[in-house]
Amino acid sequence: MAGLELLSEQGFRLDGRRAGELRQLRARMGVFAQADGSAYLEQGNTKALAVVYGPHELRGSRGKAPHAQALVNCQYSMATFSTAERKRRPHGDRASAEMSLHLKQTFEAALLTRLFPRSQIDIYVQILQADGGNYCAAVNAATLALLDAGIPMRDYVCACSAGFLEDTALADLNYVEEAAGGPQLALALLPQAQHIALLELNARLHQDHLPRVLDAATQACRHLHALLDRVVREHLRDAAALLGK
């Protein structure tokens, strides 16, 4: 590899992580007062802000609404200043629309939507700084926001990406590793039941390697679950102490 060595001989990546190591995760729940639920999350340099409204009465056209369950409405967007190159993204950006659809699929699998017929749950996620793993940060932030809003779900949804390089599976890719063009897998997992909410693979990967990459992603999701759980419990403990329960 010319110039950039993504994985050194000693097994370190560009930012000094080991192959299976996650980036630092920092998160906070309840950042906005007006929304039903909100969360801010940093995974390394990727920063995401998620806001949840609902469940509330259906707004807009009722034609496409599912009959006996809640409509999950997701909107993913990237701030103009989130990437290295400043880019104005008016609504209807193709990549964002696809990401919104992915988020919708992911959360329809996790939310107990049947409890809320005739209503709607809005999830808005914005990426404030993009440094790889945008989908994963969006899912993790949205999970925290949904928990903050008290909306019933089967389990946490933890998402993590994984790649494959020089016969090694790498977890939680950053931007440089993503841009290198190797295979990239995004996994959204319900960790306690081990259900897959969404699995996406970009670029070609040999079938024999898939289990290893999947394992790396699964392991990373489990770690993420532990980290998110810690954030949630800390938040709960504070709130419960304040309310005197």
Binding site: L147, P152, M153, R154, D155, Y156, L190, P191, Q192, A193, D229, V232, R233, L236, R237, D238, A239, A240, A241, L242, K245
Partner: peptide, 23 residues
Amino acid sequence: KRLAQGLPRGAGEGDRDLVAPGD
């Protein structure tokens, strides 16, 4: 500032009753 800082924590037992989805 952490809001709950000065408040007494439910002595040990508070934690047991707190759950998160999937628990």
